[in-house]
Simulated scan of single mutants.
Amino acid sequence: MGGERGILLFAHGSRDVRWREPVEAVARRICERDPAAQVACAYLELVAPDLPTAAAQMVAGGARSVRVVPLFLGMGKHLREDLPLLLEQLRTAHPAVDFSLRKAVGEEPELIDLMARIALAQG
C-alpha cells in the first residue's frame, strides 16, 4: 500500500510520447527525494491517465491528502477554468481526502530564476 500523502503532477498532454519524458523525470526526482510519498502524473488531454483516474488510483493506494501540482508555465484558461472544476469533482468523488492545489510551477520565483539563468548561460 502507498503512502498517505499524494503528489499529482498535472500537465497538458501531447500525442508525442517524448513530450511526457520531462514530466515523468520530475515524478522520479520527487520519489528519490521523498520515498514515502505517492507520486503520479496526470494529464488534461491526449494522454492517460487523466486527473480523476490518477487521483482514484492514489486514493485506492491509501492517500488521505493529495497535492495537485500544475506543471504549466502560466495561468491560462486550463488552470483558471478547467482545473477548478476537475478539483471540485475530485473532492465530491473522494470526500474523505484533502485535495490541495499549488499554483502553476511557472509562477514560482525559483523556476522563473532558473529559466532566466538557463537563458543567460553560455554554451
Rank of each mutant, 00 (worst) to 15 (best):
G3F: 02
E4T: 09
R5F: 12
R5N: 13
L9C: 04
L9A: 06
F10K: 01
A11Y: 03
A11L: 04
H12R: 01
G13P: 06
G13K: 10
R18Q: 13
R20W: 07
R20H: 15
P22K: 04
V23G: 08
A25T: 13
V26H: 02
R28I: 09
R28K: 15
C31S: 14
P35G: 09
P35F: 10
A36R: 15
A36G: 14
V39L: 00
A42L: 01
A42Q: 04
A42C: 06
L46I: 08
P49F: 08
P49L: 07
D50H: 10
L51I: 05
L51N: 00
P52T: 03
P52E: 05
A54D: 07
Q57T: 10
V59T: 00
A60H: 13
A60T: 07
G61S: 05
G61I: 03
A63M: 07
S65Q: 15
S65R: 15
V69Y: 09
G74F: 14
G76E: 05
E81K: 11
D82Q: 03
P84N: 07
L87R: 12
Q89K: 11
Q89R: 08
Q89E: 14
T92Q: 14
T92D: 09
H94P: 06
P95R: 01
A96Q: 12
A96H: 14
V97N: 00
V97Y: 00
D98V: 10
S100C: 10
A104K: 02
V105F: 11
G106N: 05
E107F: 04
E107D: 07
P109R: 14
P109V: 09
E110K: 13
I112F: 11
D113Y: 12
L114W: 12
L114I: 06
M115A: 14
R117A: 15
A119I: 04
A119D: 03
L120V: 11
Q122D: 11
